Computed example of a mutant assay.
Amino acid sequence: MLKKIYKLLIIPYTLFLLYLMFLGMGRSQYSDNVIRVQPIFATLGFIKNTIRWWDSMRIVLGNIIMFMPFGFLGWIFPKLNNLKSNIFTFISAITIVEALQYFTRLGIFEVDDIILNTFGVFLGFLLKQVAEKRFLNWVS
Rank of each mutant, 00 (worst) to 15 (best):
K4D: 01
K4M: 07
K4L: 07
Y6E: 00
L8V: 13
L9I: 14
I10M: 05
P12W: 07
Y13T: 09
T14I: 09
T14R: 14
T14A: 05
L15T: 13
F16C: 07
F16Q: 08
F16W: 09
F16K: 12
F16A: 08
L17S: 02
L18T: 09
L18E: 01
Y19V: 00
Y19F: 10
Y19G: 00
L20W: 13
L20F: 07
L20G: 01
F22E: 00
F22Q: 05
L23F: 14
G24E: 00
M25A: 04
G26I: 03
Y30E: 03
D32E: 13
N33W: 03
V34F: 08
R36C: 04
R36P: 01
R36W: 13
V37L: 15
I40P: 07
I40N: 10
F41G: 05
A42E: 11
T43S: 07
T43P: 13
L44P: 06
G45F: 08
G45M: 04
I47C: 09
N49W: 13
T50N: 06
T50F: 00
R52D: 04
W53Q: 03
W53K: 01
W53I: 04
D55H: 02
M57Y: 15
R58L: 01
R58C: 00
R58A: 01
V60N: 03
L61W: 11
G62S: 01
N63K: 13
N63I: 10
I65P: 01
M66H: 11
M66G: 02
F67R: 14
F67L: 02
M68A: 11
P69G: 05
P69L: 03
F70V: 10
F70C: 03
G71H: 03
G71Y: 00
F72H: 08
F72M: 05
F72D: 02
L73R: 14
P78L: 05
P78E: 11
K79F: 09
K79M: 04
L80I: 12
N81E: 08
L83T: 08
L83H: 07
K84F: 11
S85Q: 12
I87D: 06
T89L: 07
I91N: 15
I94S: 15
I94T: 15
I94Y: 15
T95E: 04
I96L: 09
I96T: 15
I96R: 15
V97H: 15
V97K: 15
Q101L: 03
Q101V: 11
Y102V: 03
Y102R: 02
T104P: 05
T104L: 07
L106S: 03
G107D: 00
G107W: 15
F109W: 11
F109L: 08
E110A: 00
E110H: 03
V111D: 01
D112W: 13
D113N: 06
N117E: 04
N117K: 12
F119G: 09
F119E: 06
F122K: 05
L123P: 09
F125H: 08
L126D: 10
L126Y: 09
L127K: 04
K128T: 12
Q129W: 06
Q129G: 10
A131E: 08
E132C: 02
E132H: 09
K133C: 02
K133E: 01
R134Q: 11
F135E: 08
F135T: 10
L136A: 14
L136I: 14
N137R: 14
N137F: 10
W138V: 08
V139S: 01
S140A: 11
